[in-house]
Design a protein around this nucleic acid. Structure first.
Lengths: 131, 131
DNA sequence: TCATCTGTACATGGCCAATATATACAGTCA
DNA sequence: TGACTGTATATATTGGCCATGTACAGATGA
């Protein structure tokens, strides 16, 4: 488990940590019960404050990815894929609802929305190819 | 054309002005060619700075609702319903993009999104029946 | 022409949420 | 007991957004 931070990035440090550890868990590099580096060790390694690593761990714990145990450490939780999916699904729903709210006044119907969605998907794929 | 501001509202002053004038135009209370109060007159009336009224007018102009003419005043533009639609479409796109961004990590594909969309549409219709 | 109206450009100050921090406290375990 | 663990506290810094005053330039009618 190796975390790399970019200071030039506009993404907050604690967010970068969350993303990388979260990805490692989702990707299977970290499995249930695995111990994460302690907040202090990670802070020392990355040359940042303990509070920042703590924040990352706290939020990961709140999202169910890890469990923190005072005096012992932080450990990967059994990956509840259903829970993870639920959280993402809410974000998706929120976005779709926003689109839907704006669609009415714009005179756009269900089929128009689907069409736009397909267009956006294609644009996204095209973009990833460009890079 | 009467603008009323609420200081207790968390909505910015310039935004409140935009909303009310925009609504008046869309609602037909203001028609093509009608003169709006000058930025100074409106500022005096509302006891706020010229800069704030200017900001409201500038953004309304950028969105095609009005035209500002140095030395003359601000005037309602012919309501280009196509343009209005364009703007709504952008909001729709933004919502869809948000949903799309969240969909990837959630393991949701194109078909899943369409399905969710249909569900939301049904929920919406059901809601309107209830009311 | 000149007084007075019009919109516009500029730099600045206040506010607030988000980010990152140091340090002291409390639990675990060899 | 010593050396590790996570946690709670108050605080500093930053950056974006809102609102502002003032000086400038164009238009218009007496």
């Amino acid at each position: 488990m190796r975390v790399v931070l970019s200071n030039s990035s506009k993404v907050p440090l604690y967010e970068q940590i969350k993303e990388q550890i979260g990805a490692a868990i989702l990707g299977g590099d970290l499995g249930e019960g695995d111990a994460l580096p302690s907040v202090r060790a990670l802070a020392r390694d990355l040359r940042i404050s303990v509070i920042t690593t703590t924040r990352a761990y706290t939020e990961l714990a709140a999202e169910g990815f890890i469990a923190t145990v005072p005096g012992k450490g932080a450990f990967v939780q059994p990956l509840d894929r259903e829970l993870v999916r639920e959280q993402r699904v809410r974000q998706v729903e929120a976005g779709l609802q926003t689109a839907l709210d704006a669609a009415g006044p714009a005179g756009l119907g269900r089929d128009d929305l689907v069409e736009m969605l397909d267009t956006l998907i294609q644009a996204e794929q095209h973009e990833s190819v460009e890079q």
